[in-house]
Design a protein around this nucleic acid. Structure first.
Length: 876
RNA sequence: GGGAGUAUAGCUCAGUUGGUUUAGAGCAUCUGCCUUACAAGCAGAGGGUCAUAGGUUCGACUCCUAUUACUCCCACCA
């Protein structure tokens, strides 16, 4: 045998196998007679680099895909990236700025050329990184949400929904980002605590010298005030009915309105109303039919409605206006105040609520069936607790603002006519045809049509992802979509259950009349040891590539999975990866052991035959357990099951039993059975640790290079022999009992012991497995006895007593103490059982098998107590 | 403010419709071992009033109620 290193070195081996898998197209899938198993990747942002969240998410996907592939499914994992309009545009803008180019100086076409250029050069690094992790994606299918087919799908869907009346254009209050010059969805706004001031301003009552004090954090918005509101039952202000107030500095006369919306406890209980710049004020404005005065430009400066403040920045204006108010004696007081301010997730700019013409999708009709399929388990959520979250949102769903004032994205296919009408169509030509059809007298030409400047929300393309990657929007009957849709599992984070998961379900039902996936597995958030979310800004996220260099991709994969049941956050700690690496090494050394044996045609020892028999039974039991774990998506438990099966059952028990004495040969029968078993173990482990298992598979037996483990079939559990498992479990317990004595008495492993065991219920099993017991405990004799052995250590396992005569003297005091403690324990136990049995209602009401079990507990404990007492007596 | 979830060993988690000897695992800890596959290892051990208080039941980690602590989601007060 050639020398095999005692330490497993992952890196070279991982690179080697990934290249071989790729060269042999092991990940490729095309429709065939098998059943499909499909996963579409949650497309990472094209700007993204691999972080720990991706590692977890993609490890899980790979485990599921690899297992399905080995179970005979035609497994297809579709990779790709998302154009991420806001993030990418921000990145390109920043890069251009470094080069001294302003976005404003470029035409739309020029900017897009730069953006595509950036995408070609830097986009999709993350997909290369995923290969290091071992992701078995069908890379030939890599899709991008802005590529032609997907772009067109988005446009098709927009036109279709518009024609169905599900898309409309309306005035709405949107979250305006004055830096990015775009509207943001509610989800993209984050609220931050900020120290600010609460200004108490005097509003004169019209035709009176009295005034009302109104508290505000945004004094500059008085320029847009069109009312002051108080609570209808607020006695302080009951005299204001029918009165009007003068907005300070501005001099405008506005009505006092009464509405229960006002919190009487806050400030003075009087609220100024600026319908153009606050969502609540806007709603109140609608209700009370107030004027709307918009005072801001898009970039956050004051517009002409700002009068003398026009063209000032909003924050400069605030300072100036406060000064002016103070000079005019219109400030009652100023207090410190902490409030929460909405900021843009991307640019960090303070959000300006703004009235704007935007495109919306009507959600109500789409949401209803999408809610139903989750509630009735057509789509199963793992864990199921997210069903509640989902329901809550779907029942209160609001219309979806889909227009974004950006260039990088699918441009909205709406065309404005000189007569201010709008037509929606896939192309300019079709739009023109529609325009001519509607307004035959106008004789429009294409030059008359002006396309909407906005692009669509990124999620408006990602919601089609499971369909559009198979081109199922443009060609609903193509072979690919028919074969692969619906997909099987979606692996994603609970944070995007609404923007993405819910909307994919809606799109699936609307465009395929079928759910997009059967199962949704929600991963947790990866946190650091202190429980903080991993993030770039905190710098607490390890570099996944470096981690894989140190522990191997297999080690990191195992590390990620060990501590993350579905839906639970993962408090990441490198020691998990270390455990994974150690496991790789353990398997590696099992291989070294086996490969070091000389094989000869010898009769198979009984101990080996029994070990094989037991291990096969254990294998069946384990396979059943795994089947159950996987069907419940309990991947951590499945991995732990495999881990213990290999480390404990295979290495610590099976191999130790069959291991021949040093430099002695092994019989060929046991050897062949062992190689068989080892190969099956590698198959079972493969989905979790693809690289080390593939490597070892090829070293166990000589095989052709393209005879891949990853394409082999997963072993299936058959009926298991519980009787064997039970007997062996007792043998293990017995062996541990003897070893404990050895440990307690500090007897070296090499000193062979003499052991006698009492005749009883289990003595048959002990005789049957005598060879194994002798080997595992290093015994020189192992015999049954019908009498007590004097001057020996006596212990009990089950109901069997065993004796180890020791050459040295027995520490009577210590033994006595231990036995007395045991007696105490069993007496306590017996007491609790007796209490139950003496309870008449227990005996009469509990099922008979339970009562029977209690009786057995009682007799067992009594037998043990009796034996222990005998031992105690023998000691004295 | 509204909704949901969690609370079991030092840490991370299992514990199926209430009854399987007075709760299990991995890691960590401790003890003894450099035993010819592996110290990234071997053998063994210790460690829990199952958050608190009530209730239902013959019987509660498991079901109900309240309390406490934490987490997440939604909304948000000028």
């Amino acid at each position: 045998m050639t020398e095999i290193a005692s330490k497993y070195e992952a890196k070279a081996i991982e690179d080697k196998w990934y290249a071989k898998w790729m060269n042999n197209k092991c990940f490729a899938s095309q429709p065939d007679g098998r059943k499909a198993f499909t996963i579409v990747i949650p497309p990472p942002n094209v700007t993204g680099v691999l972080h720990m969240g991706h590692m977890l998410n993609n490890t899980i996907q790979d485990v599921l895909v690899r297992r399905a592939r080995m179970k005979g499914f035609n497994a297809c994992w579709v990779p790709g990236t998302d154009h991420a309009s806001i993030a990418t545009e921000a990145k390109v803008v920043a890069k251009l700025k470094e080069e001294g180019i302003n976005k404003q100086d470029l035409s739309r076409e020029e900017f897009l050329a730069h953006a595509w250029d950036w995408k070609e050069k830097h986009g999709g690094i993350i997909l290369q990184q995923l290969k290091k992790l071992g992701a078995s994606c069908d890379w030939d299918r890599t899709r991008f949400t802005m590529e032609e087919a997907l772009y067109e799908s988005v446009i098709d869907v927009f036109v279709d929904l518009y024609d169905k009346g599900l898309i409309y254009r309306g005035v709405r209050m949107v979250n305006w980002d004055p830096v990015a010059l775009t509207a943001l969805s509610d989800e993209e706004v984050i609220f931050k605590e900020q120290n600010s001031k609460l200004y108490y301003l005097k509003y004169k009552i019209e035709n009176s010298e009295e005034f009302v004090v109104v508290a505000t954090t945004r004094p500059e918005t008085i320029l847009g005030d069109t009312a002051v509101c108080v609570h209808p039952e607020d006695e302080r202000y009951s005299s204001l009915k029918g009165k009007r107030l003068i907005v300070p500095l501005v001099g405008r006369s506005v009505p006092v309105i009464f509405d229960e919306y006002v919190d009487r406890e806050f400030g003075t209980g009087a609220l100024k109303i600026t319908p153009a710049h606050d969502v609540n004020d806007y709603n109140l404005g609608l209700k009370h039919k107030l004027d709307v005065i918009d005072i801001f430009n898009d970039n956050g400066t004051l517009n002409d409605n700002g009068g003398v403040y026009a063209s000032m920045d909003r924050f400069d204006c605030r300072r100036k206006i406060v000064e002016d108010l103070q000079d005019a004696g219109l400030v009652f007081k100023i207090e410190d105040y902490n409030n929460k301010i909405g900021c843009s997730e991307r640019t960090n700019a303070v959000i300006e609520p703004k009235l704007s013409l935007q495109w919306f999708v009507r959600m109500e009709k789409l949401a209803k069936p999408a809610l139903e399929v989750v509630m009735n388990d057509t789509i199963r959520f793992h864990p199921a607790k997210f069903k509640n979250v989902y329901r809550h949102w779907m029942e209160n769903v609001k219309d979806w603002c889909i227009s974004r004032q950006l260039w990088w994205g699918q441009r909205i296919p709406a065309y404005y006519l000189p007569n201010r009408e709008v037509v929606v169509a896939k192309t300019l030509e079709e739009a023109l045809a529609k325009a001519r059809e509607h307004f035959p007298e106008e004789n429009y030409t294409s030059a008359d049509l002006k396309q909407d400047e906005d692009v669509l929300d990124t999620w408006f393309s990602s919601w089609l992802w499971p369909i559009s990657v198979f081109d199922g929007i443009r060609h609903p009957d193509n072979d690919q979509i028919r074969y692969y849709y619906p997909t099987d599992d979606l692996i994603t984070a609970p944070e995007i259950i609404f923007f993405w998961v819910a909307r994919m379900i809606m799109a699936g039902l609307e465009y395929r009349k079928e759910v997009p996936f059967r199962n949704v597995y929600f991963t947790g958030i990866v946190r650091d040891k202190l429980g903080r979310k991993m993030s770039k800004s905190l710098g607490n996220s390890p570099d996944p590539i470096e981690l894989m260099d140190r522990y191997g991709a297999d080690g990191v994969r195992m590390g990620m999975l060990l501590a993350s049941p579905a839906g639970n956050d993962l408090p990441f700690d490198e020691s998990y990866c270390e455990q994974g690496r150690n496991f790789s090494n353990k398997i590696w050394n099992a291989l070294r052991l086996i490969k070091s044996w000389k094989v000869e045609h010898l009769p198979q020892p009984d101990s080996s035959r029994k070990a094989v028999e037991w291990f096969e039974a254990k294998m069946n039991a384990t396979l059943c357990e795994l089947e159950k774990d996987f069907s419940n998506y309990k991947l951590s438990e499945a991995l732990m099951t495999v881990y213990k099966f290999i480390w404990d059952d295979f290495c610590s028990w099976y191999l130790e039993i069959i291991k021949p004495a040093y430099q002695s040969p092994i019989d060929s029968e046991t050897y062949e059975r062992t190689l068989d078993i080892f190969e099956r173990l590698m198959k079972i482990l493969h989905p979790f640790m693809p690289f080390v298992t593939e490597e070892i598979y090829h070293m166990i037996r000589q095989r052709k290079e393209d005879d891949f483990l990853m394409l082999s079939s997963m072993p299936c559990g058959t009926e298991r022999d519980d009787a064997v498992l039970e007997r062996f479990a007792f043998v293990q317990e017995f062996i541990a009992g003897v070893r404990t004595v050895r440990n307690e008495k500090n007897i070296a492993q090499k000193v062979a012991l003499e052991v006698y065991y009492s005749n009883g219920r289990e003595s048959g099993t002990l005789a049957e497995y005598a060879d194994i017991i002798s080997k595992m405990c290093n015994l020189k004799s192992f015999e049954s006895t019908s009498e007590k052995v004097g001057g020996a250590i006596a212990k009990m396992v089950g109901t069997t007593e065993f004796f180890i005569p020791l050459t040295g003297s027995v520490d009577k005091e210590e033994e006595t103490r231990k036995i007395e403690a045991d007696i105490k324990y069993y007496e306590g136990f017996r007491a609790s059982v007796m209490k139950k049995l003496s309870n008449e209602s227990f005996v009469s009401k509990a099922p008979s098998n339970i009562v029977e079990a209690e009786r057995k507990k009682l007799s067992d404990s009594e037998q043990k107590i009796a034996l222990l007492k005998e031992q105690l007596a023998a000691l004295k």
